[in-house]
Amino acid sequence: MKLLEREKEIISNELQDIVDEYQSKPENLIPILQKVQDKLGYLPLPAMEKIAQALHIPAVDVFGPATFYNQFRLNPPGEHQVKVCMGTACYMAGGSIAMESFERRLNIKEGETSPDRKYSLERVACVGCCTMAPVVVVDDEVEGSVTPTRVDGIMLSFEASDGEKKQEQVEGPEKEQREELEKEEKSEPEKKEGE
C-alpha cells in the first residue's frame, strides 16, 4: 500500500504527539491506535511501526491488537462507509438481504473497499437499534427498516451528494488523494485485514 503525502506527513509529524499524550505507556496502545485511526482513517504499517518504537515494544505487539479488533482497519476505508448490522433482530428481519443488496449494488463483497476507494462495506455486530431492524449505518447515520428498495434510495443519495461535491471541486487533501488514486487505478478490491 502506497502512502499518500498527507499520510506520510501525519506519521512523521503528529504520531509522536499522540503517543506522548498517552505518556508512552504500552497499556494505552488501544486509545493510541484509535486516535491514529481517527486521523488517518486506517492503520498503515509505517504508523504502527512508529508507535511500537515510541512505546518501546516489539512491532508485532502492535500488529496483534490491530488485527484482533473489529474497529481497526489495515486498509483505507471508502469515502462512504456502509455498515450492515447483523445483530439478531436485524438478521431475523432480513439483514443478510440488505447486505446482499449492497454487495450487488456496490459490486464488492462484505469487508471490501471499492477500487476507487469510494465505498466500503462492512458488517457490524449490533448497533443497538434492534427495534428498527434491519438497520444499516451509512456514514455514521443510522437507517432503519432497510429493504432492497431503500438500498437503491441510499445509493441514489450517494450519487446525488457526490454530484454536488464535484461542482464545488474541493481543494486540499481530498483533491490530492483523488489525483494520487487516479495514478494507481485499477487495483483489485482491498480485502480488510483480520476479517
Binding site: 504499517l45 504502527m48 511501526e49 511500537a52 515494544i57 516489539p58 512491532a59 508485532v60 505487539d61 502492535v62 500488529f63 496483534g64 488485527t67 484482533f68 485485514e193 483480520g194
Partner: peptide, 25 residues
Amino acid sequence: CRNIAKVGAIGFSRRGLERVVSTFG
C-alpha cells in the same frame, strides 16, 4: 522468542479461526 531469545520477532495476530503466529505485517 520473547523471554529467552529476547527478540520478539513473532506474536499472535488476528482472531478466531484466523488466529496465527505471525511477524509484524
